[in-house]
Write a protein that binds this DNA or RNA. Structure first.
Lengths: 340, 340
DNA sequence: CTGACAAATGAATAGGAATGCATAAACGGG
DNA sequence: CCCGTTTATGCATTCCTATTCATTTGTCAG
């Protein structure tokens, strides 16, 4: 039934040229004359010819594909992955597509399954890594991949010498803190960590602390337990604060998932947001738009995040030196900080 | 720097066999003796040899890859894609990975860019389509792909003769309606459509109407305008109901996004949920967990949805006849229906 | 001991495009 | 009119694996 595949030889025969010329014409080699090129293109169209991607890949060793890996917490269901990473994933795919690259997506909680993704099996020209930095095993593996020369960029790496893109956490945290101060909140607690491996959270703490001190206020920290889920971290922090007699009038959560967990617990305890206590998150998660009250947050520019990740990876593949970059953030003001 | 690639010939030399034997040993051909196979495997390990996926693909014509296409509304930002589809995407990727298939993911709003994904460029063995059924252009394109013999399965197709998987919408709608009735709501309005191209919404309407009539109640419909975003559809429906003097004490929204839009508008109008008016959605969107009040919904079993889509596609590729299937749903009871 | 047959392996080729090298055509200057 | 260039094209080879066909080795019955 399925007739013989149309090859570049068929096109060559029809256009009255050689197979080499067909190949050159279609790959855009400037050496072929315009007249010939258009004859070839026409013949290809007539025969409904399309390059056999696999043959081209074998010959060139390039795949035209980027692999995007979403690191999950071990055992995490895919539907429970932080929606932030889904938004990021979407924008990466869009950015890659705009550069004519395909995206091979996988979700990983155990790193062994990654063997074979890059280099060993040449399925992709490079790797974009996003997702939980809490999965240490996975990152150890990327460490070794990176050191063996793989092309790899990531979102919010725990390793400084990787090529990474992050939100402008420092600026974002200052923005958030400033916003709370402007709203009249003074006793602000940061729910997160200043522990160094969680770079992004540490940077947010730094921005927070700086802005607080500049206002003559004391930055306070509610340290989270990395073993819990993000939402539980938020709930637990609120419980601890309740136990301590509420030494605060506002909370700055290191990410929206923590904020949403905190919000739930606050409601549970009958604490009114934003009147009794203000709350701001970080990441611009969609879910925050529908919480009660809707969550104020710091939102990175997702589209440029995807663009930057893809461009940096392509630059790396092309052998150009890269420098670290930050994604711009903006205040997404909703009701959880609108008191009065 | 990069040393010459290790090929199966190198392995053959080291193991003292021919290249053919290496290939057979590594692809699991039962004809090779155990002794030889283990020698080959050992040699491959020592040389850090890995099959060149591209060469294998060229030879076999199989890619070991499934393409997943997420249809977007034209111009829709990737971060604004219905989170339901992201959850589904995640579970599809996990299911494919469990079957040793890679997943090539793309987001599409204009169908032209799809030319080249399947068949023409042999990048994938088959296609899984999920996403908005409102993008008619895209579906017209899939219609032609399907008719030309492409391997293709989809989530909630507008075409009955496609191979599709859907939620058990009828059962889910009965479940939802039953739940509302049990909670004492009687004047229930379905926000959605009974218009046939939107199969899933139609099926939900049917289940709703059936259960209502069985209880001696009149099923009422608030028809949505497909040109608006889902959330706006919800908002608009609520406005219309307000204008009509609230002829209802509960709302059953055709999907969670509509429900969340409705919820927002209800709060805006000072209508108390669930005391004054009950609200239930459909899809089990994560965002509903954080709304105020948290949204009761009907949740499909995402994991089996991914499994079923992948299995059906693989069956199709293998040439086995497929029959339509339904994904089981369950009631996800939260607070938007808990009155009293 | 030999022929028939099965089991295991090797040699050779196909798969389809890209590319280095060779060559033909076109062109211009002397 | 000839030769050195440039421009455009063709020829032959390469990428690496899977697979068909042929061959060798081993086994067992007669």
């Amino acid at each position: 039934m399925r007739q013989q595949r149309v090859t570049s030889f068929d096109v060559a025969a029809r256009a009255g040229v050689s197979q080499s010329t067909v190949s050159r014409a279609l790959t855009g080699d400037p050496v072929v004359s315009e007249a010939t090129r258009s004859r070839v293109v026409e013949a290809a169209r007539e025969l409904n010819y399309h390059v056999d991607e696999n043959a081209a890949r074998l010959r060139t060793g390039k795949t035209g594909t980027l692999a995007v890996v979403v690191i999950c917490r071990p055992g995490e269901l895919r539907k429970d992955v932080n929606p932030f990473y889904y938004s990021l994933l979407g924008s990466i795919c869009a950015a890659a597509s705009a550069k004519d690259f395909e995206t091979l997506v996988s979700f990983q909680d155990v790193p062994e399954s990654l063997w074979g993704l890059y280099e060993e099996q040449r399925k992709a020209d490079g790797l974009i890594i996003i997702g939980s930095t809490a999965n240490r095993e996975a990152w150890d593996y990327f460490r070794s991949l990176h050191d063996s020369g793989a092309h790899l960029v990531c979102w919010g790496s725990p390793y400084d010498d990787f090529d990474w893109i992050r939100s402008d956490n420092h600026a974002g945290a200052r923005l958030a803190t400033n916003h709370l101060i402007e709203r009249g909140y003074k006793r602000i607690v940061y729910i997160g960590t200043e522990h160094s491996p969680q770079r992004q959270f540490k940077e947010r703490w730094d921005g927070f602390a700086e802005r607080m001190r500049a206002a003559g206020l004391e930055p306070k920290l509610a340290e989270i337990d990395e073993r819990l889920s993000r939402e539980e971290q938020g709930r637990e922090a609120v419980q601890a604060l309740a136990g301590a007699g509420w030494p605060c009038d506002a909370l700055f959560a290191a990410c929206d998932e923590i904020a949403l967990g905190a919000l739930e617990e606050l409601r549970h305890l009958g604490k009114h947001v934003p009147q009794e206590i203000g709350l701001i998150g970080f990441d611009g998660n969609r879910a925050g738009a529908h919480s009660s009250p809707p969550l104020t947050s710091i939102e990175p520019d997702f589209e440029s995040a995807g663009d930057m990740l893809v461009e940096k990876l392509l630059g790396l593949i092309a052998g150009e030196p890269q420098d670290q970059q930050r994604v711009a953030v903006r205040l997404l003001e909703r009701e959880s900080t609108r008191r009065g």
